[in-house]
Write a protein that binds this DNA or RNA. Sequence first.
DNA 1: AAAATGACCAACCGCGGATGG
DNA 2: GCCATCCGCGGTTGGTCATTT
Length: 327
Amino acid sequence: MGRAPCCDKANVKKGPWSPEEDRKLKEYIETYGTGGNWIALPQKAGLKRCGKSCRLRWLNYLRPNIKHGDFSDDEDRIICNLFASIGSRWSIIAAQLPGRTDNDIKNYWNTKLKKKLMGFPPNQRKPNQLQQQHKQQQQQHQFFSSTLESTSPFSLPPSLEGMPAALSPYLTNPSTTTTTTTTTTTTFSSPTPLQIGPLMPQLKESGSNLLIFGGDQSCSSSDGSCTQIHYGSGRDIEFDLLNISAGDHQQVSLESYLFNGVEDAQKLLLISGGGGGGGGCGGASFEYNYPEEIKPIVGSGNNGCNSLYLNDPTSGCIKNQGKYLYF
DNA sequence: AAAATGACCAACCGCGGATGG
DNA sequence: GCCATCCGCGGTTGGTCATTT
């Protein structure tokens, strides 16, 4: 037994809204409000539309104070920072950007911002775009760096001092810094480019696009795999936990991996909080000034860190905490 | 100039949560 | 507690326009 349809699909119009329909909907809502019942609204307003369609049209287009057009750099940064923190929770992100709708932001992210940050679509149109691509790569690198370093209300603190040391140099100045990050099991002694173990090809093949930096590895499962990530509302993302270790390796810069390594699937970069399994965020997590309403979503409880839980449902142990960038 | 391809965005779909009877 | 209904969200689709070949 399936869910009853929200409206009689045979008798509702679909597709783009005409100016006349817009006018009817706008006039009705401005006069009577939504009445708390979108399903009944179209009939009352004289529209042959599904209530959901009316709601969408109103919220995304007709509602007063909707902003259309280009996103500002500040908006870009807010979107990036929030996306890095809470993922594709577009409605929450939209709540931080007055006048922008979740649909708008989602489209903007999927069509422009993601590319701006991650690099280029695999299908370049013309060969002579190589130069342009190089230039754009530099721009995107600068943008990503400035995004993470921004001092906007939702930004990381200046100098990224809380950021995992292994990551920071590659996001800020990949060509000049040598950094060592030590964890309980993994050490990066990383001249540029960052050394990433032979798991890189597997990332692509398996679709397990998770990059772990540091971490306490207190996971007790024999294969070292964790199966769930919990963020806030209890949604789970299933994935395989991959360990990345120093050793004999192909040399792959982090940036190269971030922007070009995985093209066809979501990419999850988990920057772990470092030592202290189960509690405390350790020295490697970076602070993030979330708006109050977002803290419960990304927050981790009493340790004062805005972290995520990697939780093993079988053992019940918290395996790791950290930040993630999630593409 | 026409066809092919890609980018963009509005709108749709289906699911899960909330709510009320 | 169960069920039906509605709302809101995130993912996806499809149409249109722009660019490239």
